[in-house]
């Protein structure tokens, strides 16, 4: 199993922490993982993004230049990351904020109304977790349980009710195919 993932969106949408969470979950499962952020001027004026690798083998390249999965959370991220996807790769689109349509037809596209679903479970802040849930559900690269237990390590100060809410967001996301 090898999954190279790029997660992208506005600063503040939690794309960087979603990446950390994914890597931590992989570690919980005993996989080799890496996380690599965008930093410096790259972060200014719009999109933040990170690379995550989860694999049974060794992580060679922490910079995922041809992702198996791209999770795009805002409009500017779509044209930036769609072209990088591997043939047959998975594109998860936050349809709450992205109105454009992808151009490629050699990839699998899933639209997720992340913001609306997150608000329904109780907090807009969990939109990134809805997308992670969808990723987990479709790829099977990671289980919801692993992400939930990783949350305790990554969000050390989070209250139990927040963790519960986050888990719900993951589960709602995982229902979508």
């Amino acid at each position: 199993m090898y999954q190279g993932v790029r997660i992208a969106g506005f600063g503040g949408q939690g794309v960087v922490s979603a990446g950390v969470l994914l890597a931590q979950a992989g570690l919980v499962d005993g996989k080799a993982v890496s996380w690599y952020p965008s930093y410096g001027p790259e972060m200014r004026g719009g999109t933040a993004n990170c690379s995550v690798v989860i694999t049974d083998g060794e992580v060679s390249t922490p910079v995922v230049s041809a992702p198996d999965t791209a999770i795009v959370m805002n409009e500017p991220s779509l044209p930036k990351f769609e072209p990088l996807l591997k043939k047959g790769g998975l594109l998860i689109i936050n349809s709450s904020l992205i109105k454009s349509k992808p151009k490629r037809n050699d990839i699998r596209v899933v639209y997720v109304d992340c913001n609306a679903i997150a608000e329904k479970v109780g907090s807009l802040k969990a939109a990134n977790l809805v997308a992670l849930g969808t990723f987990a559900g479709i790829t099977g690269a990671i289980s919801i349980d692993s992400i939930a237990s990783a949350m305790k390590k990554v969000f050390k100060r989070a209250k139990p009710e927040i963790l519960e809410l986050n888990r719900k967001a993951l589960e709602e996301g995982a229902k979508l195919k």
């Binding site: 950390v20 993982v33 890496s34 996380w35 930093y39 992580v59 922490p62």
Partner: peptide, 9 residues
């Protein structure tokens, strides 16, 4: 910079 910025187990 890649090694410095990346996270790993």
């Amino acid at each position: 910079g890649i090694l410095g910025q990346m996270m790993e187990g």
